[in-house]
Computed example of a mutant assay.
Amino acid sequence: MEQFQAGEIVYMIIRNPHAQDVAQVQQAAIVENPDNPNELALFAHDNYYPLSNEFALFKSEDEAEQAYKDAFGSPEIEGFNG
Rank of each mutant, 00 (worst) to 15 (best):
A6Y: 04
Q26S: 12
N53P: 11
I77S: 06
Q5G: 10
Y68D: 03
A19V: 00
V10G: 03
M1S: 14
N16D: 15
A28E: 03
E65I: 14
N81K: 13
V22F: 09
A28C: 05
S52V: 09
M1P: 10
D62M: 10
A28G: 10
A71S: 14
Y48S: 11
H18A: 07
L51I: 11
Q5I: 06
P17L: 08
I13M: 02
A44R: 03
S74H: 07
E76W: 12
L51R: 01
G79L: 01
I14K: 13
G79Y: 01
F55S: 05
Y49H: 12
N33H: 12
L40F: 04
I30K: 01
Q26F: 07
H18V: 00
N36M: 02
Q5A: 15
E32F: 12
S52I: 06
Y11I: 07
N33M: 02
D62K: 15
P17M: 07
E63W: 03
P17D: 06
Q24I: 00
N47S: 14
F4N: 01
S60V: 09
D62I: 15
E61S: 12
A41K: 02
Q24K: 13
Y49T: 05
V10A: 01
N16A: 03
M12W: 00
V25D: 02
I14N: 11
K69F: 05
Y48V: 12
Y68P: 09
L42S: 02
D21Y: 08
K69R: 15
L51T: 07
M12C: 14
L42W: 00
N36C: 11
